[in-house]
Design a binder for these strands. Structure first.
Lengths: 250, 250
DNA sequence: CGCCAGGTTGATTTCGCTCAAGCAATGTGG
DNA sequence: CCACATTGCTTGAGCGAAATCAACCTGGCG
């Protein structure tokens, strides 16, 4: 124990920093623009904990008291109605920040956040966030860009929901998953590890699970994909893309 | 003509400022956080002109070269497919800024903007915008709040599009219009001046014009509203609100 | 007056939902 | 280790809400 108090405090900070902001999560998040000292300070103020699948981080209607940084894991952000029907608005993975929208708009949470895979989450309270945003304009601009991108995808989803038929939307969902969850095998085929249940996949595109199931079947029969459980092969990428490309529905 | 060059330049600036940023438009826009000198400088750099109904400001797919401030008028932001079916994403009125989303996200326009009523529009190029955002963090925070609010409404629209039936969505649209376009008559009844065509109203909630027409008919038969042309009376506000309130669809 | 675009109404079709049953995988207690 | 619940997924049959197709108003305008 020949080490100074300085050094051991630095160790504590460094260790906590690594847990709050793992490299892979940090670099794809808005927080990457903060200086090392700012990050260190931030994560000393953070409330961090691990969550298990099934836990809920916040509910629709809850007052928004700050934002949640997802260090690792998988979270579903959804709106539910009394009958238990849900719409899955967003899938969050490591590096995503939850609740920034209601925080910035100054309203209550308009959706609930449910843990889908074991996660580590850090909470930053409104005061800390407010101070940080004023102290560091770059952070605000990062969130602004994020909000702009998400607004674009939200508008596209609305368009697709009202104009595109079921099969097209399922094909598009699979292609979205491809970008994030695909591995390419030696023979060139594409293997997806579907990260969520059929219920939730259906809830992402606003259809019933039964309809999704039937559509997966027809796509399978047509030789585009081959799905069993959470493993999905894309057998014919070109034709799958063609399903989405021309927005003609005849 | 005893006035100095100084004074007459100030007049020119002041006059141009008043045309670009009319009081009512400015105060509900993000730009209100700029100092008078900043506004003056900005509108000297702006390209302003008047537009007539039917003109298109930008098309889906166009590169985004800056943002458009709507001094007055009415603009429809829409996505169209080859068959001519359109979805109306947004109605912009005086004080709204168009194209800030693609500008910030760094992509092309993902929708086109069509003039619906005679408008006055000022264009600020990307360079000017970029400099301003860096020079004045408050402006960024304003746009951040705006983006957060719009993201919320976009997510709600998606939810409603996939979960709520036609009648509920029509009722909700009428109530949205009420907030912006209603006048309350002496006898307490509420009169709406519907700002857009049936086609476009239908395109806002992602349904066909025929379906909208039928639904307006049933709402009329039920005594909730009374519509002729672009004049709509809300006869029973409570029941109209009740149509929207409980999201049960039986 | 006739024309035409926008709006309404009617008849029919269809896509996706509802309801219900079957099935496979996983867990649990005896 | 097996009976059995439980849960998530799939399949089938029937239905219904909204789309489609088509005709017909209506009102503004040359």
């Amino acid at each position: 124990m020949g080490r100074s108090a300085e050094e051991s405090r630095a160790d504590i900070v460094g260790e906590r920093l690594g847990r709050c902001f793992p490299e892979t999560a940090l670099e794809r998040s808005e927080w990457r623009v903060l200086a090392a000292e700012e990050l260190a300070e931030l994560c000393m103020k953070a409330h961090c904990r691990a969550y298990q699948p099934g836990e809920t981080i916040f509910y629709e209607g809850d007052p928004c008291r700050g934002v949640y940084f997802l260090s690792e894991g998988l979270i579903g952000v959804r709106k539910e109605d009394p009958d238990g029907n849900s719409v899955l608005l967003h899938l969050a993975t490591g590096g995503d920040t939850l609740g920034y929208r209601p925080f910035l708009a100054g309203d209550c949470h308009q959706a609930s956040a449910e843990v889908l895979k074991a996660s580590k989450i850090c909470f930053f309270d409104a005061e800390t966030m407010g101070a940080l945003l004023h102290a560091n304009p770059d952070l605000g601009l990062e969130f602004l860009r994020r909000a702009a991108r998400e607004l674009g995808t939200a508008e596209n989803r609305f368009y697709e929901a009202v104009r595109l038929d079921l099969r097209t939307r399922v094909a598009h969902l699979l292609l979205l998953f491809k970008d994030r969850y695909a591995t390419i095998e030696a023979d060139g085929r594409v293997l997806l590890d579907l990260p969520i249940s059929r219920q939730d996949m259906a809830a992402m595109i606003g259809v019933r699970a039964e309809s999704l199931s039937r559509t997966i079947r027809t796509l399978t029969d047509d030789g585009l994909i081959d799905v069993s459980g959470h493993r999905a092969w894309i057998l014919d990428m070109d034709r799958l893309i063609a399903e989405v490309a021309p927005p003609h529905l005849h």
